[in-house]
């Protein structure tokens, strides 16, 4: 049943919701709505990180990024930090690893049993914060290490758990956070553009 006073725009949205048919009307407004709804459909179809891991396991002969290998060797040699892989929170709009689009900085939130890590990836910088989940005290002496393009950049965490990488030439990489005897891994953080 058509709701009373339904505008053309609302009708197009309702039709899309009910039938899956994208608007095909003439004019820029219809075209823009179609574009937005299609983008919503694509974004909501994003595979989860576990989906991606499952597929990667099936693809033979993939070469691990050099940085990851080097990082793992270094971690094994160090042998003093408990390695914890951070999990991206799933209650964001889609199961994606990070917000990254254009030049806009937007946050992603990762969690481990003990810490919450927030990162915002920009074109030439990454900002982040590491906070204990069940305490107000931030262990001293922590640091964050960004591994990208065969290079490792380290910054100290400040007293509030904050860190900032700047003047980066960054497309993808990994971030390790060493804090409170743990090494937290944020795998495959990507820059704003592919």
């Amino acid at each position: 049943m058509t709701p009373p006073h339904e505008t053309e725009f609302e009708r197009a949205v309702r039709t899309w919701e009910e039938t899956g048919r994208l608007p095909e009307g003439e004019g820029p407004e219809a075209a823009l709505l179609r574009r937005t709804l299609l983008a919503i459909e694509l974004l909501s179809a994003s595979p989860s990180e576990s989906d991606i891991d499952d597929v990667l396991c099936q693809l033979p002969g993939l070469v691990a990024p050099k940085t990851t290998l080097a990082d793992r060797v270094q971690g094994m040699l160090a042998g003093v930090l408990e390695e914890v892989r951070a999990v991206l929170r799933t209650d964001l709009i889609a199961p994606q690893p990070a917000f990254r689009s254009g030049s806009t900085v937007a946050p992603s939130i990762y969690e481990t049993p003990r810490y919450t890590v927030t990162i915002s990836v920009g074109l030439e910088s990454i900002r982040g914060t590491v906070l204990p989940r069940e305490s107000d005290e931030i262990p001293a002496g922590g640091r964050a290490v960004l591994a990208t393009r065969g290079e490792r950049v380290a910054v100290d965490l400040d007293a509030h758990g904050g860190f900032h990488f700047e003047e980066l030439e960054f497309d993808h990489g990994t971030i390790e956070i060493e804090i409170g005897g743990q090494q937290i891994l944020l795998g495959d953080v990507s820059g704003p553009t592919l």
Partner: peptide
């Protein structure tokens, strides 16, 4: 709302250094 709303770091930036 959690997640989308930017939750910027609470602190000033740290100095960065290159390891190699």
């Amino acid at each position: 709302h959690e997640g989308i709303t930017p939750q910027g770091p609470r602190s000033a930036r740290s100095a960065s250094r290159r390891e190699r």
